[in-house]
Nucleic acid binder design. Structure first.
Lengths: 249, 249
DNA sequence: GAGAACACTTCCACTCAGTGGAATATTGCT
DNA sequence: AGCAATATTCCACTGAGTGGAAGTGTTCTC
């Protein structure tokens, strides 16, 4: 038999979405073969879909010929209204203006933090967070700030899993992490030291609206400057409170 | 006959893209009926596609139930690597820091400017440009800065069309616009006064790499403060030159 | 430079997923 | 309530989509 019998029960739309969904922060560019493997589709099917998506500029090519998200999706993505970001951005900007440090805003999405906005200047420490990117909660400042205000059942189930350990400073022992979160709740902000990336440390404060952690505001600097963090906590909390006030109304 | 004969010659993928493409800056949210009309698809087909796209969070719902671009596309869009933005952002940030004014970066795409980045603070004048948005070239500062450095044939064909006239200050008379562009080229920057939006004025400088206008950097303020523009031109040009230097290498 | 390993592209007979007009349900407005 | 606009479901028909296999190009290694 030469003709292909179609695999039953899968819509074309879902295949298009599988192709798009194969791209993520860890795999921003892929070869056709990788894309086929990641989307679970036969190579020839992937090839045809890619060609159409490329024609529409939904996908593009990196200089080396690998596939990546194209300009049309970039444009489309920016159409998604994001009330939180629009409203919070001026505060991030102010905070950046008064401190000169990397500032970012994140929300919880599932068991991860999703970065929603980021402001950085010329002499920024290179940091891992990028807008639209995701990181686990327990090694990040914003993650801890958010997690500390989640209900107990959520925290318990979060801690019950095997926790990733990106650096040797990452706290993964459930008891210690639980105590850490209690401290965050008590003082109203979280601190990290090289728990996610060697060489950087951070402070973060939750944006609490009616007691619910709708977002967290974080500030990141080189770990050599860790002792400057305490000075930054007050402006950080003030900005977080400002965002909370604006968001609540 | 009750069953639908399929319209021949159109792939499902193209229909999915037609649905997504129906959203633009002028129509960020649509009802199902509007969406069907804009994408040129039958209502029932649109409905089925929308349901799948919604399930995958490629589309979402506004509070009033209208459809809009969903979080998954927002996330996907941010994966599109944008070398220009990443590299230029620190300069916009610096420029904002030293002036406190709205700053944005745009490229030419076809006959329009496409806004690639924007930095604004708490007391920003509300301006029309938004990241991912498009505007015509002749009424905007960045548009004029870009157009002035395009080859003659391009400018001629641009001016030959009927030009939109968003405000009474918009220059649409081809001869006058051509002279304006010559002046821009002579002085190295463009100025506007209420040509796009009543109440705002702007200055813009091209980012020239090997003589080609790869982008333009603009600064926008309330038109009541138009006389402050000249002071801003030098830092603006310096930042544009900095971006050009970084981009060229 | 022969040969292998890999990545990409094209081909084509088979068949079921997608189709869209019409019927029905829901919502909003007067 | 009565009407209009909008959203959702239904279903018989069929060609668009399918994917294995063969063909082409590119990049290694020996």
């Amino acid at each position: 038999m030469s003709g292909g019998a179609r695999e039953p029960g899968r819509s074309v739309t879902s295949k298009v979405l599988a192709v798009l969904g194969a791209f993520d922060a860890a795999h921003p560019q892929l070869t056709l073969t990788e894309l086929a493997a990641r989307s679970g589709l036969p190579l020839s099917t992937t090839h045809r879909l890619v060609r159409e998506l490329e024609e529409w500029q939904a996908l593009g090519r990196a200089p080396d010929g690998r596939l990546r998200v194209g300009p049309r999706l970039w444009e489309l993505g920016h159409l998604a209204p994001n009330r939180l970001q629009e409203l919070a951005h001026p505060w991030l900007q102010d905070l950046f203006g008064s401190t000169g440090e990397n500032v970012h805003l994140a929300v919880r999405d599932g068991l991860e933090v999703l970065y929603v906005d980021k402001v950085y200047g010329r002499r920024a420490v290179p940091i891992v967070s990028r807008i639209g990117g995701r990181l686990p909660m327990h090694p990040t400042g914003v993650g801890k700030a958010l997690l500390a205000y989640e209900p107990d059942w959520f925290v318990t189930s979060y801690l019950a899993r095997k926790l990733e350990r990106p650096t040797s400073h990452t706290i993964t022992e459930p008891g210690r992490l639980a105590r850490e979160l209690a401290a965050v709740r008590a003082q109203g902000y979280a601190l990290t030291y090289e728990e996610m990336t060697p060489g950087s440390c951070s402070a973060a404060a939750p944006v609490l609206v009616a007691g619910r952690p709708v977002a967290a505001l974080g500030i990141v600097l080189s770990s050599r400057r860790a002792r400057e963090l305490p000075r930054l906590v007050e402006p950080l909390r003030a900005a977080a409170a400002g965002i909370a006030g604006a968001y609540g109304s």
